[in-house]
Design a binder for these strands. Structure first.
Lengths: 216, 216
DNA sequence: TGATAATTTGACCGGTTGGTAAACATTACA
DNA sequence: TGTAATGTTTACCAACCGGTCAAATTATCA
């Protein structure tokens, strides 16, 4: 008798590993474009190049597939923030954080859109992860930024809103890509726009922070 | 015989006006939460408090409903940018633009999410509007900003990416509301967060722009 | 009032949805 | 090689989808 995925406790076959990867890749493609409810299992199976029952042999429900995907993406998505180093130079830390986030928006736009779709639709499946691990990590890094501000290394500012603004400005280039391209037009919508964006954002955040203006 | 909406050329009944409003209100609620494909006509009819055939009497298809909604929202959504005044003081113009956008994110989050959903899913229905009216408006305002920079009134910067960053940072508080609340926690997730955000963003953009740092 | 037009409803339709059952094929391994 | 576990497919199902239709109800106004 066949044992579906959830029942396995032993090591995974090479086939299992390959197929699950293949499925998650297809699921990422479809979920990131249509959201959870807008995506269909048939479509994912089609993109993955296998029959629907075959797909459902590895992930028993559409929701299980989505959950596996979200969990994985959320984890790698926070890597740049984890690298944020308390001992480093504030200016270079913030600069490289912006750059890393922008590179992820450029290289993994589907992951960004998957996440955006989930949050946009009320994050029904990952609210706990947001209030738990995500909040903990942000709290920790916010404290670092606050300490830098207190020491006069950067301007006084609300560290949470600083992080939000770095998230939003960088992810914008993945999530709102269609709009960005439409506004910039054909000539400027090539890959060069990421360099322009990086230049602008570094100027904005570094100039905006490294001088201690009146904080009110 | 009943004349469905599209065939009407005469003035609209009070009932028509009221019902269409009622439907669009419900459609906004549902579309903004689930996107086009994820929303169902039954659900919209339910929220609107009427039967599905009754709803379809006013909007013959789900797509017609969505189109009417998007067109209306896109129009009002650009109002703050239209008010951007070339003759005004750069600092106060940018400050009040940020404030207006932030107020819209606070007061009309569903409109913001509807728009975000549409863009996120590839903007299949409004690509023309983006490349036409939207691009034209942004081009016009970008020229104003460029002139300000040339005159030394603000720092030299790419005006398009400046506009993108104002859009993204402000709309973030509507589109990613769930995440913002989760990270800030119960104590700070009240309405006061908009005041904090406004303070931070004004500091960021005004400090980041009004000093002519080396633009490279 | 009465007739006509506008509105609302319940029943229904063909297609799609997520998911299942069971037969069939393939692999792993003793 | 044999056989048991794993993997794949065809056929199918009940629920739901967007949308139609004709009959019933309500508003309009001469």
């Amino acid at each position: 008798m066949a044992l579906p995925r959830a029942a396995r406790t032993q090591r995974r076959t090479r086939i299992q590993e390959a197929k699950e990867e293949q499925i998650l890749e297809a699921a990422l493609e479809v979920f990131s474009l249509h959201g959870f409810r807008g995506a269909t299992v048939d479509q994912i199976a089609d993109v993955a190049g296998m029959s629907k029952p075959n797909l459902l042999y590895y992930f028993r429900t559409k929701e299980a597939m989505h959950r596996a995907l979200i969990t994985r993406v959320l984890d790698t998505w926070l890597d740049p923030l984890r690298e944020f180093d308390a001992g480093g130079n504030p200016v270079s830390e913030i600069r490289s954080y912006i750059r890393r986030k922008l590179e992820m928006a450029r290289d993994f736009p589907r992951e960004s859109r998957l996440f955006a779709n989930e949050i946009l639709q009320g994050a029904p499946n990952i609210e706990d992860e947001l209030k738990g691990p995500l909040k903990a990590l942000v709290d920790e890094k916010a404290e670092v930024i606050r300490a830098w501000a207190k020491a006069g290394k950067i301007a006084k500012c609300d560290p949470y809103h600083l992080i939000f603004s770095i998230w939003s400005t960088t992810q914008h280039y993945a999530d709102f890509d269609v709009q960005v391209r439409a506004v910039l037009g054909q000539d400027q919508s090539g890959d060069g726009r990421f360099e322009d964006a990086a230049r602008f954002l570094e100027q904005l955040f570094l100039t905006g922070l490294h001088i201690n203006e009146q904080p009110t």
